[in-house]
């Protein structure tokens, strides 16, 4: 099973420029979504037939702090002008949507906020996603970023 990670505090823009470079929407994303986006790029960039719409791949993201870092940024913006650009990332499941939009995945997407990294629980939740007779594999990620400069970010593909 291929597993990828991004070290805490790494320069995400530099990784984007090296791996992708032609998806400017990246710059709009909050740190949680940037991490999820880059992790998924590391996992699927060599996929055959990439960008062909498909329903059989799920995207399931886990974290502890959800989108808290962006929530704080948005709350600060409310002191002046509440930023719509920040507001759109004040949901922890947006990262799963960003990955799906990029890759044209049309299957299951979900995001869970857990007390802590709990691999047996994560595996159990992912197994449930395979009960629908459509999902054949899943991009699974643990992305926890309590701030914009520190995080744990790892992802893998789980096959049914």
């Amino acid at each position: 099973m291929k597993e990828v990670s991004i070290p805490s505090g790494a320069n995400l823009t530099a990784i984007y420029r090296e791996l992708v470079g032609d998806y400017p929407k990246f710059f709009k994303m909050d740190t949680l979504s940037k991490l999820g986006f880059l992790l998924s790029e590391m996992l699927v960039r060599d996929d055959e037939g990439r960008f062909t719409p498909r329903e059989d791949r799920a995207v399931i993201v886990f974290s502890r702090n959800g989108c808290l870092a962006n929530d704080i940024n948005y709350a600060k913006s409310m002191e002046d002008f509440p930023s719509p650009a920040l507001f759109v990332y004040t949901l922890p499941n947006i990262v799963a949507g960003e990955i799906s939009i990029r890759n044209k995945y049309e299957g299951e997407t979900s995001a869970y906020v857990l007390d802590k990294y709990d691999r047996p629980l994560i595996d159990a939740i992912v197994r449930q996603a395979f009960q629908d007779r459509i999902t054949r594999d899943a991009i699974v990620a643990w992305i926890d970023c309590p701030s914009d400069s520190e995080w744990t970010a790892t992802a893998w593909i789980k096959t049914k």
């Binding site: 400017p24 929407k25 710059f27 709009k28 002008f81 930023s83 719509p84 650009a85 507001f87 759109v88």
Partner: peptide, 17 residues
Amino acid sequence: GDDGLGLDSIDVLELIV
């Protein structure tokens, strides 16, 4: 749109301000 900067309708509000 996808061919340029990738902004969307939400961003129009920011540009107006």
